[in-house]
């Protein structure tokens, strides 16, 4: 029983990571109708920036803030320099760009930081597990950080003028320009925000899995499964889907398929969703009158 409870808590903790990356994927998907396959590698690269800062003596939370800011700038710059000129390009060209980005971040990270596994510090301390031993300090802390990030992003999109303009620019760029919204800048902000969210996810997962240039490839697959499960057109659904995948992965890995085959669960979820319910559990089919 305690074992199951522990798997559930771990599932929620890693589910938060998947939820964050799933949210980043959905944000880009809504604006471009493409899945940014490089989202995970961008997060991995951000995590190396954080490690470099920490090794240079910057205190953890200082490094955290700088990393988030730098990641935001990198994300926005990628949109401006690479994606913007591709706005009207055929689908395959965009897919090519995403895969190119993925390989580029992966190999540059390997070249700069080597492919050896590196430990990454947790800001929540090493002490004994909490609440009768079934939740580690890092699990609790990273879940709280993830929830803060998700709530902040939700409130930003829901309540601010800029958040509304970013949603409008993603849904309907033509009408957005006609009301005076600089659509290109909004897309760049969206990429920046997605990269910043990914950076937090990377820094939160790195203490658990160790840092190496391939750290995020599995995470991206789980996040993608979560986004599909919740509904790739629904940010809230994608977040819920991310948490669900975390729980399924942990419990399924412990009791059904075993840890070695855990990643297969993500593929199974992806295939089942695509076949049975392509819109996802919470995907809204928008009612459009013509």
């Amino acid at each position: 029983m305690n074992g199951l409870l522990h798997q559930l808590v771990s599932g929620i903790a890693s589910g938060g990571i998947y939820a964050s990356v799933a949210l980043a994927l959905v944000m880009i998907y809504q604006a471009t109708h493409h899945v940014n396959f490089a989202q995970g590698e961008m997060a991995m690269f951000s995590t190396y920036i954080a490690l470099t800062l920490i090794e240079a003596g910057v205190p953890y939370w200082g490094a955290f803030v700088i990393t988030v800011a730098v990641s935001f700038v990198i994300g926005a710059a990628i949109q401006r320099v690479l994606m913007n000129p591709m706005a009207n390009a055929p689908v395959l060209a965009s897919v090519g760009i995403f895969i190119g980005l993925l390989l580029m971040f992966n190999s540059v990270a390997g070249w700069l930081f080597t492919y050896t596994l590196k430990p990454f510090p947790s800001p929540f301390g090493e002490g004994p597990p909490l609440f009768g031993g079934f939740v580690s300090r890092h699990e609790l802390g990273s879940t709280i950080v993830t929830l803060i990030v998700l709530l902040t992003v939700w409130a930003f999109f829901r309540f601010t003028r800029l958040g509304l303009a970013m949603r409008a620019a993603a849904f309907n760029p033509v009408s957005s320009r006609l009301v005076g919204i600089p659509v290109g800048s909004m897309l760049a902000l969206g990429w920046g925000l997605a990269a910043a969210i990914g950076a937090v996810a990377g820094m939160m997962i790195a203490p658990v899995v160790f840092l190496d240039p391939n750290m995020m490839s599995g995470v991206l697959l789980y996040a993608f499964a979560g986004a599909l499960l919740g509904g790739i057109t629904n940010p809230l659904g994608a977040v819920v889907g991310g948490f669900m995948v975390g729980v399924i992965e942990n419990i399924g890995g412990a009791y059904i398929v075993g840890t070695e085959l855990k990643l297969t669960l993500a593929l199974v979820i992806i295939v089942v969703v695509l076949v049975v319910r392509p819109a996802g559990l919470f995907g809204k089919t928008v009612v459009n009158r013509v």
């Binding site: 509304l164 949603r167 409008a168 849904f171 309907n172 033509v174 009408s175 006609l178 928008v286 459009n288």
Partner: peptide, 11 residues
């Protein structure tokens, strides 16, 4: 007010 009304359908 554009051709087709330009409604932000999802909002």
């Amino acid at each position: 007010v554009p051709d087709g009304r330009g409604t932000f359908m999802e909002l």
